[in-house]
Nucleic acid binder design. Sequence first.
DNA 1: GCCGTCGCATTTTTT
DNA 2: ATGCGACGGC
Length: 725
Amino acid sequence: MNNIDLLKNLNNKQKEVVSEIRKNLLILAGAGSGKTLVLIRRIAWLIHKEHCSPKSILAVTFTNKAALELKIRIKLLLNNNKKSSIWIGTFHSFAYYLLRIHYSEAGLSKNFQIIDSYDQKNLIKRILKKMSLKDKIYSIENIIKYINNFKNNLFNNNNIIYKNNLHNINLSKIYDEYQNLCKITEVIDFNELILCLYKLFLNNHNILKIYQKRFKNILIDEFQDTNDIQYKLISLLYNKYYNTKIVLVGDDDQSIYGWRGAKIENINYFLRDFDNVKTILLEQNYRSTSNILNAANKLISYNNIERKKKLWTNSNNGKLISIYYALNEFDEAEYIAKYIKKNFLKKNIKLNNCAILYRNNAQSRILEEIMLKFSIPYQIYGGIRFFERYEIKNILAYLRLISNLNDDNSFERIINVPKRGIGLNTLKIIKFISEKFFLTLWQSSIYILKNKKYLNKKSLNSLRKFVNLIKKLKNNIIEKPLSIIIEETIKNSGLWDMYNKNCLSENNFTKIDNLKEFINAANYFMNISLNNKKKNNLLIDFLSRILLLTDDIDFKKKNNNCNFIQMMTLHASKGLEFSKVFIIGMEEGIFPNKISFNEKNINEERRLAYVGITRAKKKLTLTYTKNRYLYGKEIHSIPSRFLNELPKNCIKKISHLKNKNIFIKKNILKDKKYFIGQNIYHKIFGKGIILNIEILKNNKKLQIKFNNKTIKWIISDYIQVCILK
DNA sequence: GCCGTCGCATTTTTT
DNA sequence: ATGCGACGGC
């Protein structure tokens, strides 16, 4: 391999990225500008042209999927069958990897486990219950935000200050208790992973030095989505006297994780804090038609922020962007289903290159329903992930408990699953003792079994049975392969029987299926870690690793050759591309989401729309509805402001609403019903539209927006249905 | 201790 | 519409 190959088919800017090795680089890479290709070529360049050791390269991606893609493509390019020693992964897996090695210097226990956001929530719930704080300020969402912000911003929690000082005191009490419980149950959360590594480096210069010396080439992808602590971590790893070279790749227009603490400003900080930085703009888009690109550019220009770059393309106009106005979300889904039938299935065109994107996961439900009805094969990314399923959580809890008896989270989860006669009262006693003597729930149970006075005979018996079961399961794991351990734990714990008993019910059938799938996952994991030296740690490693892998390694045989339409949230679509893209629910309140109706957040929503639009290569369809069911009620929707921000010459509007309106009107008149969005007439106030309906005893109360823009609640008796064209 | 029922609140995005 | 917590009857 020579340098000519590595620069082949690249534009001048791209060539610069691949071959400029004397400077730190800030690459502002627009959507579809060949970013991944360039990254891969650069890594190859470092190895082949500059003779850097693969071990000197650290490549951090945002998701595991991106990491996997990078790994595969590099392997292909390097034509190398050996296991590559380039370190590629997410910040979280990087932190995990190092903390496993340096656990003791980091102040962690040897077998520490990671908790995901679900466990985090449970833990906080338990703390709140214990402290009996009921105020709305102590809602779980708020507490999670507080704790995560606290960690992401290195304890500078300036943005959360409540007027009432008691709140601050309580919040910090909750925080301390949370940290304390994590410590004694030997678990750490996602943010703590990064924070812990940061502190490790900060307090142990000898360790930091090892990695500064090793990682001379640092590449960070999706830099716009890094947070404070990640930025600090990068800064620590960088040592100009060791000649470290950093390449940051990002796109300020695609920053969509502000709610998770991501700071676009990091891009500017990098320019401010680092020497010898060269900024390179990748502005040529190789993905989309110019209609799609123009629409994206126009839309994002409404953010009124100075634009660092502007995408352009050589490709032709292509098809117009369709905007479909649907009656409601069912009509919306049916339109897509019919489109797919007509343009894909009947023509035998594969669906893989086709995606439906939505703002929130709940929107996928109707889609699923309709796709099933029209027999269109689909595949959903995200949503309830495999490892978040109830049955999987249960087996995970058993495995975690037997590898760490002090894992209270897991203990509490499965002490009575399946039912074994240990109810709330027994649990209360166990908790009471644990608090009194500063014991974990497991230790407390042992204590109670010794000092029989705390429980009656029946309860004691049930508890003893449980403790013995766990001991038996624990003894069983010695000297056995991982998948066998898991299989036997599923069977011996009683979980299998619990779901198998009435497997006639569809629900339990899939649950059993998922458990089998979980065993497969363990097998898969065993195979890829075959060269691991220590078998004892395999279970512990497996349990933590899978939490970090949640997003993409869906063990349900994802086969790219299969013919499925892809469905996912806009967030999940980042970094992907499809020939044909639908974005649904283009309505105020949904997209942009109503929680984001302020300037800062609206900008992020707009960037999200930008991300969605730029996923499309050839054809884009946006849909919105007239009415939508929300929280069990039908509401009248208002078209998303983003629709108005698209250039008129790039779009084409489609609606079959007129026909549908007439059809419905007939029904309504027959049933004497009112519906939201219906046009009505009032003797005094004139014409108006129904916004909301409330049912009274004998008639209905209607909220109506009249043509003079006033909104009133009116009893239905005084209203006449008005037939409009 | 278990199970069914009622009423209440809750709907953003994810490593 | 769904899901969770509280409550009461068995």
